[in-house]
């Protein structure tokens, strides 16, 4: 059974259909990519998977539990973490503190025990610091440990978002365009980082426009267009699929007016 199973998922905004009757399953331990032309509904899909939007129809099961109806923080509790296409950094905090926020669900300290600095809080603080440093090291950000987030370049922030998500120790990591806006060197680093993440056993669901990266790191790829499934399979099959080529390169374009 797949880690994440999506059945009959539909969502429309007003009269515009963003996702229509979508089915797919993400097997545990794989890098699963979702691609499609701009406006195909990828980000809408992501937002439904993590509880930000609620779909009109269908079901999303993670570890055999229904995600629909849960708030984002409740979805996070199940073991889902994510990064954002447009950076959602805590710019008012240091790199270390940003990543420590990622440890929120792995610690339990309540406000009164934090306020009185009880021994439990001291222990947890040390633990959170260890976890955060691990994630920072893993993403190659050790040089920026004490830096303030608002002083960092874009490429570093992209990795910082990943470090923060990893600090939560998720079962499933949703990555929304991790390579968008990165130069070639940074994209290469991102590629090996995604591989490393997958190597630790975390399942990765990737949305990305850089086809080289997608073909390189993915175990399976789902192509969506106009909110429905166009093709699904391993990278080689997708690359040679005529429907995919048509959707991307145009072929005969029919505009639905």
């Amino acid at each position: 059974m797949a880690l994440l199973e999506v059945h009959g998922l539909s969502k429309s905004f007003g009269g515009v259909t963003a996702i229509a009757d979508l089915d797919f399953g993400v097997p545990e331990g794989q890098v699963y990519s979702v691609i499609g032309p701009n406006g195909a509904g990828k980000t809408t899909l992501f937002n439904m998977l993590c509880g930000i939007y609620s779909p009109d129809e269908g079901s999303i099961r993670f570890l055999d539990r229904e995600i629909i109806g849960r708030l984002p923080h409740q979805v996070a509790e199940l073991g889902v973490s994510r990064t954002f296409q447009n950076l959602q950094m805590f710019f008012n905090m240091s790199v270390l503190d940003n990543v420590k926020v990622g440890c929120h669900l792995r610690t339990r300290g309540r406000i009164w025990s934090n306020a009185l600095r009880l021994p439990g809080t001291r222990r947890e603080e040390k633990q959170a610091e260890r976890w955060a440093r691990e994630a920072i090291l893993f993403c190659g950000l050790d040089d920026y440990l004490e830096s303030h987030a608002d002083a960092l370049p874009y490429g570093v922030l992209k990795r910082l978002e990943i470090a923060r998500a990893l600090a939560a120790s998720p079962r499933l990591l949703l990555m929304d365009e991790p390579a968008a806006g990165l130069n070639d060197t940074e994209t290469k680093q991102m590629r090996s980082l995604i591989r490393q993440i997958s190597g630790t056993g975390i399942t990765v669901l990737l949305v990305e426009h850089n086809m080289g990266l997608v073909m390189d790191v993915s175990d399976r790829i789902l192509v969506i267009d106009y909110g429905s499934r166009l093709a699904e399979g391993p990278p080689e099959a997708i690359q040679n699929d005529p429907r995919v080529i048509e959707a991307y390169l145009g072929g005969e374009i029919e505009y639905a007016v």
Binding site: C50, I52, L71, P72, H73, A76, E77, S81, R82, F84, Q88, M89, F90, F91, N92, M93, D97, K100, V101, G102, C103, H104, L105, T107, G109, R110, I111, N114, A115, R117, T121, E124, E125, A128, R164, A165, A168
Partner: peptide, 22 residues
């Protein structure tokens, strides 16, 4: 501490704070 970071995260980005389980 944990609760204070949750407060500051709220200020930084509400959607990211939610996704971190806050």
């Amino acid at each position: 501490s944990r609760s204070g970071r949750a407060l500051r995260a709220l200020h930084g980005s509400e959607v990211a704070a939610e996704m971190m389980g806050i």
